[in-house]
Simulated assay, not measured.
Amino acid sequence: MIRYLKIVVCVFLVYFVADVFCIKCWSCRSNNDPKCADPFDNKTVPITDCNEEKGLINFPGLRPNMCRKIRQKVNGEWRYFRGCAYLGEVGIKGDERFCLMRTGTYNIFIEYCTCNSKDGCNSSGIVSPMPFLLISLITLYLKCFS
């Protein structure tokens, strides 16, 4: 009986983890909607299921697995872009509290932030407790049924 319970719990956890990777992200551009800028106001901004994105022409089969927020300053004007991300890694060295920043000539600044901790994570820099909760559940399961 305990063996069957372990199988059911493992199937549930695999399903739960797979669902976490099907991420939804805020999708907007500040030049079309000023509420896309910071501070972010998501009342009129759509959240997009990244699984339903068309994909990239140059990379067939590649699916988005993260959210992104790009903050760009060009000639003194700030622009914000939010949406699904296809390439790269989460945050810097896996820590989504940190963003990649670049500066260039002619007063250009770019901040590129990526995350996948929760749906809509590209709204702010708050890290979700989801990974810690999942690890705690698995640890509790192993201690109780070992």
Rank of each mutant, 00 (worst) to 15 (best):
M1R: 12
M1V: 14
R3G: 12
I7H: 07
V8K: 04
V8A: 13
V9W: 15
V9N: 12
V9T: 04
V9R: 10
C10K: 08
V11E: 10
F12R: 01
F12L: 08
F12P: 00
L13P: 02
Y15T: 12
V20L: 13
F21S: 08
K24V: 07
K24D: 12
W26N: 02
W26Q: 04
S27N: 14
N32V: 11
N32K: 11
D38Y: 08
D38Q: 09
P39H: 04
F40Y: 06
D41S: 04
D41N: 06
N42W: 11
P46N: 02
I47M: 07
I47T: 09
T48V: 05
D49F: 02
C50L: 02
N51R: 05
G55H: 02
L56G: 00
I57D: 15
N58I: 14
F59H: 10
F59S: 03
G61A: 01
G61D: 04
L62G: 01
P64C: 02
C67S: 05
C67R: 09
C67H: 05
R68Y: 15
I70G: 02
I70N: 10
I70P: 03
R71S: 14
R71F: 15
Q72Y: 13
N75Y: 10
G76W: 05
W78C: 00
Y80N: 03
R82L: 05
R82S: 06
G83N: 01
G83R: 03
A85G: 05
A85C: 03
A85T: 06
Y86I: 00
L87F: 10
G88T: 10
G88H: 04
E89Y: 06
E89H: 06
G91Y: 01
K93G: 06
K93A: 09
K93Y: 14
D95F: 05
E96R: 09
E96D: 14
R97N: 07
L100C: 06
L100A: 12
L100Y: 13
M101W: 11
T105F: 14
N107A: 10
N107F: 09
N107Q: 12
I108V: 13
I108P: 03
E111K: 08
C113Q: 08
T114H: 01
N116M: 06
S117K: 10
S117N: 07
K118R: 15
K118M: 11
K118C: 09
D119I: 01
G120N: 02
G120A: 04
N122D: 04
S123H: 09
S124K: 07
V127G: 03
S128C: 02
M130S: 08
F132M: 09
F132D: 11
F132C: 05
L133N: 07
L134Q: 04
I135D: 08
I135V: 11
S136I: 13
S136K: 07
L140A: 08
L140W: 15
Y141P: 00
K143F: 14
C144N: 15
F145T: 10
S146H: 13
